[in-house]
Amino acid sequence: MTHLTYIIPAYALAVVMILAYAISARARMERARKRLAAIDPRARDSSARDTKGPHRG
């Protein structure tokens, strides 16, 4: 394969950036979910319901 010194950094950069955004977004969401559940009892029930579909409740 030609131009590997350019192709590998391009793919590595893409993978690292996608993972960084995805992991930070998930971590932030989980942190918010736990904090909300700790101070709002209703959130504990609704967070379980959230994953079951858009037309419920």
Binding site: A25, M29, A32
Partner: peptide
Amino acid sequence: FGFGAIVTARLRAAVMERRIRGLM
């Protein structure tokens, strides 16, 4: 799809954070 997932996850977090601030 990945862009949509990341933005949706960030927006969910932002909505919950706003709710937390309101409750506090």
